[in-house]
């Protein structure tokens, strides 16, 4: 059984992701974001939280266009995240990267990416370098099920298994690649068999159950750390909202949406914590207040920060020599 602190942190992280993204949507509607490109992961918080909780500080990860949750779960600085979205010089990318390109090299977060699957190559390379250096570092590549049908995933999975690289492929299957149901995208939908085809274990997990995700991730990361090679995790989850702001998801069955929303990962986990006496209602309320304060502080910081400048963009086209 996990200790109380770990269990509480998982709850705090999931709630922080949810409330932050709700705030981001609010800022978007207020016209305060520097870019209208913004994809939230509401409904998918247990995957980012469970997996990142299983990582060590020295490990790496790469993330997706729907990546707010990954950087928050990795311990990213909420101030710099909000500042980035508001286009401020204090943001993670000096205000020019926006929602899709969050990054924190100091946390081993090698960037979220606007190209579906594009970052899986970078993750594989980070794992290759860790292996060549005999470094005790595991890389986690998060991606949606849309990336499963991209060529780079196939090439990366093949290479990672061939060379037994210390990497964990985490597929967050939110069931839809924009509008396309995954049943219309790929014939083989067993992660076990998909993994087997590449020569690595494939594990399926309920992505709405944060503790189940954490367990699966702990095992996969442990395997990778001990030189036993990659694992493909398929976390079954659901994107509660549309693909992006302008998407009311008319392609989804409303009954299906209701059924999925009933399995809200945060509510499921909260009920469990209350039932098992790990948290009291007062604890839950205190966490809610703490989350609200962190977000208010981040928004305040961002709004007080100076705006991004084109000069700074021009300065960074090429890296300087050491």
């Amino acid at each position: 059984m996990e200790d109380r602190e770990t269990l509480t942190n998982l709850y705090y992280t999931m709630l922080l992701i949810r409330r932050t993204e709700e705030k981001i949507l609010e800022l978007l509607l207020q016209g305060k974001l520097a870019s209208s490109m913004c994809h939230v992961s509401i409904g998918q918080e247990a995957v980012a939280t469970g997996v990142c909780s299983a990582m060590q500080p020295q490990d790496y990860l790469t993330s997706t266009h729907r990546g707010h949750g990954h950087i928050i779960a990795r311990g990213g600085d909420l101030r710099r995240i909000i500042a980035e979205l508001l286009g401020r010089a204090t943001g993670y990318c000096k205000g020019r990267g926006g929602s899709m390109h969050l990054v924190d090299i100091n946390l081993g977060h090698l960037g979220s990416n606007g190209i579906v699957g594009g970052h899986i190559g970078i993750a594989t390379g980070a794992a290759l370098w860790s292996k060549l250096q005999n470094a005790d570092r595991v890389t986690v590549a998060f991606f949606g099920e849309g990336a499963l049908t991209e060529g780079i995933f196939h090439e990366a999975a093949n290479m990672a298994a061939l060379w037994q690289l210390p990497i964990v492929f985490v597929c967050e299957n939110n069931q839809y690649a924009m509008s396309l149901p995954w049943t219309h995208a790929t014939a083989e939908r067993s992660f076990a068999r998909k993994g087997e085809a590449y020569g690595m274990p494939g594990v399926e997990v309920d992505g709405q159950d944060v503790l189940a995700v954490r367990q699966v991730a702990l095992q996969a990361i442990e395997r990778a750390r001990h030189g036993e090679g990659p694992t493909l995790i398929g976390a079954q989850t659901y994107r509660f909202l549309g693909h992006s702001r302008g998407d009311p998801s008319p392609y989804r069955d409303k009954e299906e949406e209701a059924r999925q929303r009933a399995r809200d990962p945060i509510r499921l986990y909260q009920e469990r914590l209350l039932q098992e006496g790990i948290l009291t209602q007062a604890d839950v309320d205190a966490i809610e207040a703490k989350v609200a304060e962190a977000i208010a502080d981040a928004v305040r910081f961002a709004e007080e920060s100076s705006p991004a400048t084109l000069d700074s963009v021009l300065e960074d086209v090429f890296a300087r020599q050491d």
Binding site: Y60, L110, I120, G121, I122, A123, T124, G125, A126, A127, L128, W129, S130, L132, Q133, G151, I152, E155, A156, N158, M159, L162
Partner: peptide
């Protein structure tokens, strides 16, 4: 380990080189 024969996968050859470069290699 320093002259690596890769499978015939141009995208991941560049991708893996890039990832290694990002975390300290000079591929």
């Amino acid at each position: 380990q320093r002259i690596i024969d890769a499978p015939m996968s141009e995208a991941i050859i560049v991708g893996a080189a890039l990832g290694a470069a990002v975390v300290g290699g000079r591929p």
